[in-house]
Write a protein that binds this DNA or RNA. Structure first.
Lengths: 335, 335
DNA sequence: CGGCGTTGCACAAACGTTTGTGTTACCGTG
DNA sequence: CACGGTAACACAAACGTTTGTGCAACGCCG
């Protein structure tokens, strides 16, 4: 049922190339008005749509980009995707979404598949530090931009100042009078976690405090891992009076175990999260957190990607947004 | 840089078709072991990957499916996407994600684009009742399955029993002793909203109660719209003692205005939501809601879609899951 | 009226695969 | 030694476009 150029040409009594030029509005096309009308009528009648696959083959462009993220189920990444789709749409692009679950293996296999499909570019939100997948992307000469997390500083990147964010969160806690501030750290293989931790350490140092290694506990980005890390902290001889969690979900996990132990927030321990994902403002208590603009991440990274596609040359633009501390009821003066 | 079959063939001193057969492991291929070895070495050396676009053109299959949803930012739809991606991966498929924002125009334009790209199938989670887009899909002969919402009963569909869900929610409220139960209804153009409302009405009728039209207020699926609807309810001469919201976000919106007015939940008014999206269990108070399995929605719909792709014939299978009432602290006996 | 510049198209190659059908050389058999 | 069979490939068409170039026919000018 899908009509082809050749069939149309036969019915219109012209050569396929002529039809092609009218559907593509070739500006240099000189054509008799009646012929054009005949062709246009036929197009309307048959509902002809050029076969995108054939077009892509000929044009060496697929008009598809891919977004690779750890997990759409995480509102941060969902927001990023929205951002890129919104700008991709305006350029006539569609976007393939790939979830990696933070598995290198899965990330790599997605990339091979995307390469085979000849996507025009990829936006990678799942990069780790010195990520081999990023090297692969370069090797394959696939235009790409890193978002939220970076791999190293040579590549196009859009995200926010996680170092500052870590400092903001910690300084807030310090200003409330906390001295034993713990950090629920994420994997140090990802830039965001690394920088937030560094920001935490910097803030402590600026305040003249010696960081206590036992207060920095490697957890992860999930509720489950945040909860486990919190439990380890509570087992300490002298538990912290405040927590800075690497992200909101870890903070929520910590809240849960605190509540189970009958500890009050912020009475007994204050908590600050990171990202300000939906609904954390409605938790019990509402979570103090660091706000970042996920949709703008997506939009900006897409714009940089398309810039590369248009100029045909890789960019190493880095745009970093300022994170913002939003103070809610989960933080207060130490008991 | 991307190698082609022809280039490989030249270097290997064989015909392109021979290479093609070895990469595709053509079972009927008789080949000298040494030739095969030479070719395989060349493939490994050059990192050759068949051009997927050319393959698609020849095979008339793109190995791409699309998921069309209102908004990924909504965890329900994000979950559905995860489900379909998981099974698509096992079949070597990639998936394009499209957001419609519940705009018919945007839905239609996405569909045209997907058709032009010749995607192998689509999973549609944004259908309205008697949706023209669904008709278009049939007309274009694109295999598809509806998920969560249906358009009419002739098409493949996977979702849950929203009628039952609506009854469950309402009966729970009734069993607590509520008599003035309001319903924050969603758009009656979508099956889920329509059925949940019908379930609500049925439960009332079974309890021998006459539904009060002023207690059914058309809101929408967002926090904002839920809030507005709640305000209208509070302006009533005799406000309700309980609310059944069409989804969790609307319920959250209602909670907000209740809190602003100093009304206690569930002391003054009870609330039940729908979907059990992440974090509503951690709200203040934790939200009673109806749980549905979004990831299974996605998985199942993908399986049905692939079934169609394999058999080459449209299916009208309908699989509906049982929703589950999960009782939390937002509901209690009327004050 | 010859030549030239347009106008309005047609031609054909190319994009990179897949696959049904040759075709050659060789081996074994009677 | 002729013949059939098979092993190991080569050939070529096709998938549906795009685009540089070719080429009639026509009108116009000197």
């Amino acid at each position: 049922m899908p009509v082809t150029l050749k069939q149309l040409a036969a019915r219109a009594g012209v050569h396929p190339s002529t039809i092609s030029r009218v559907v593509n509005r070739d500006p240099g096309l000189r054509i008799a008005p009646e012929t054009r009308a005949r062709i246009e009528a036929l197009i309307a009648e048959t509902g002809y749509r050029p076969n995108g696959v054939a077009r892509s083959l000929k044009l060496r462009q697929t008009f598809v980009v891919a977004v690779v993220i750890p997990d759409v189920t995480n509102p941060l990444f969902a927001g990023i995707f929205r951002g890129v789709e919104d700008v991709a749409l305006t350029r006539g692009y569609n976007v393939i979404l790939c979830n990696t679950d933070n598995l290198h293996q899965r990330e790599a296999s997605h990339l091979e598949s995307l390469h085979a499909r000849r996507v025009d570019g990829v936006i990678l939100a799942s990069a780790t530090l010195a990520d081999p997948s990023v090297a692969r992307l370069r090797q394959l000469r696939i235009p790409f931009v890193l978002v939220n997390r970076y791999s190293d500083t040579r590549h196009a990147f859009v995200g926010s100042d996680d170092l500052l964010g870590g400092r903001l969160a910690t300084e807030h806690l310090l200003s409330l009078g906390h001295r034993r501030i713990a950090h629920l750290a994420g994997s140090q293989k990802v830039s965001t976690a690394l920088l937030r931790r560094r920001g935490y350490l910097e803030a402590l140092k600026r305040a003249g405090l010696e960081p206590d290694p036992s207060l920095i506990v490697d957890g992860g980005f999930t509720e489950e891992l945040g909860a486990r890390a919190m439990e380890r902290l509570l087992a300490l001889p002298q538990p912290p009076t405040a927590i800075f969690a690497v992200n909101d979900m870890a903070a929520v996990g910590a809240q849960t175990v605190l509540a189970r132990r009958g500890l009050r927030i912020p009475g007994d321990v204050s908590i600050v999260g990171y990202n300000d994902v939906p609904l954390v403002s409605r938790l019990h208590p509402p979570l103090t957190t660091i706000r970042v603009p996920p949709v703008r991440f997506g939009q900006t990274s897409a714009e940089i990607l398309f810039e590369q596609l248009e100029t045909g040359s890789a960019s190493s633009r880095r745009v970093v947004f300022q994170p913002e501390l939003v103070i809610r009821a989960s933080t207060g003066a130490p008991g």
